[in-house]
Every structure is written in C-alpha cells, then in structure tokens.
Amino acid sequence: MSAAVLIEGLKKRYGAVEAVKSVSLTIQPGEIFGLLGPNGAGKTTTIRCLCTLSTPDAGKIEVNGISVIDNPRVARQSLGYIAQEVALDKVLTGRELLQLQAALYHMPVRVARDRIAQMIDLLELTDWADQKTGTYSGGLKKRLDLALGLLHQPDVLVLDEPTVGLDIETRTAVWQFLRQLQAAGTTILITSHYLEEVDALADRVAIIDQGEVIATGTPSELKDKVGGDRITLRIREFTPDAEADQARALLTQLPCVQEVIVNSAQGNSLNLVVEPQADALMTVQQALKEAGLPTFGIAQSRPSLDDVYLAATGRTLLDAEIAAAGNRDLKAERKQAMKGA
C-alpha cells in the first residue's frame, strides 16, 4: 500500500528567499501528521506545493501514489485543503457555498444534495445554512470552511494552522472533530506553531525549521530522545539576581541535575533538566531548604516538543518566531500566495 502522502527532496524558492530547502515526509494512511515549526519555517509553502497551489522547484510529491506535479487534477480529487484564513463569499449563504463547492468537484446533483445536508448536520450548521456567511461568527466560519473542505470526502485533509485565532471552545471542537475524521479513515496533515495542538493531536510529527525537517517521529519518541525531565522552579515570585545565581550554583552540584538555566524573562525562574527519577523534585527542594532558600513554586514535567525543538536548533520556538519575523519577505510571500502557479 502506498503512502497517503509522500514528499521527497522538496525545494521552493521565492525570489531571494529559500522558503523550503529540503523537506521529505511520508504520511501513512489514516494518521494525523503534524508539521510543527515557527512562523516562516516553510510549513505553508510545503502544503501549498502539496495542494497544487505552488509548483516546487525540485522534489517529488505524491498523494496515494499519484504525482501532484504530473497529474494535478487527479491528485486534487483526493485532497481537501483548509487554508489558514477562512475565505468565504460573504454575500452567499453557507448552503450556496456548499453547492458551489460540490459543482467544483463535479458531484452529481442528487449526491451533492444529500452530502450537503449531511455536512450541514455534521457540523451543526442547520440554523445558519441559509444565512449569508457575512453574518457568521469566527467559529461558525471555521465550521463552514471544514464542511467545504470535507464535502467531497477527501482521502487526505490538509489544514494550515487550523485553530489560529479561534476561541478555546471552538479549538477543542475542531480537535475533537479531527479525531472523529481520523476514526472514519481520513489521513490528516496539520501545520501548527502551537506545541499543544501537535502534541494533543498528531500521531507523528515533523519539526521543520528554516525550510528543513530537523526531526521526525511520534511526539513521545521525540521527547524520549531529548531525555531528562524538566523542573521549573521559582525561589520567589520575582527572584533577585543574587539569589538566582546562588541557587544555580547550588543545584548544579546535585548529581541528578544535568543543567540549570535562569530565565530572566520570567522573573528569574530556574529551568532544570534532571534525571527522570521520582525523587528528583524532593532532592531539589531539600537542597534549597538546607541552603536557607525558600520555594515559591516548583513543578516537574516531561520534556515538551519545545524542548525537542530547543535541543535540535539551540533556540526556543518563540525565539525563532521573533527572529523569523525580521527575516521574512512578506511582500514576496503575499505575491506568491496570490499567484496561481
């Protein structure tokens, strides 16, 4: 059985910016695959190439074994694409947009009518289907967008940042819906720069940075590879520099502590990497107590995907985003996004 999505050696350059340097991914049928990376890492470019909105400079892209470059029309039939920004015609009603979508996929009228009714029911749009979409709330627009993308029952659903700008409730609903879809056999590719989203949803993850895949695996595998547990510690709500340095010197001595970072952006909280053992927390607290230092707050956790990213690139996702913001050629990207080919 061929992979649901196969991307090999994808390259795409926009003017002077090398948006995708080298991306290779294999997505198995029925899995939720997360593409995680900071803004500007090349996630959107990758899926634009996958969905035939951009032509790659080099590389191979296949959906169900069909090349999207050589045979785009056939590949499009298998793909559903949900863009980051919901683009609706605000003068049309939800039902009319669904009817338009059905015609774009050449559904026979009767099949389309049943399927539209089904999607309206499924996404709980019944009360709104015959209202103009201009009157819809953000969450409602997203639901209609999902209905549109799913109308032709694609084998592979591609979602670009599906929950950016949504309220928590809608976000949870979207997550739940995607799991439901997966259970029905749909392969799902999502991009996100939200760690929790990828962590919560994805069976497997590729972390992408500056146009390259830097790690692939299940979230659990990736975290295990980084190793160690994390302890976040506050001596006081806002710890003076002197105390923070004193604590660092002290804790670095402990055999179970691998690394101590003072995070000055968070009131000099201390981030510790420790051996994953049950009494690590106790040991740290004990050491502080003996040195006469108070403990305002302390928590132990497994490494997050951010730690995976940090280990691979030497910076956090947040730092990467701030850095990337200055490097992007937004004008060129917008131009490219508007272009058909």
Binding site: C51, T52, L53, R73, V74, R76, Q77, L79, Y81, A83, E85, A87, L88, D89, Q101, L104, Y105, H106, L148, A337, G340
Partner: peptide
C-alpha cells in the same frame, strides 16, 4: 484567498 478554492479543485 477565495480563488484558492477554485485552484485546489479538480476543475
């Protein structure tokens, strides 16, 4: 971005 709906469809 509405045009993208047309461009990703198998017209």
């Amino acid at each position: 971005g509405f045009l993208n709906r047309f461009l990703v469809a198998p017209l």
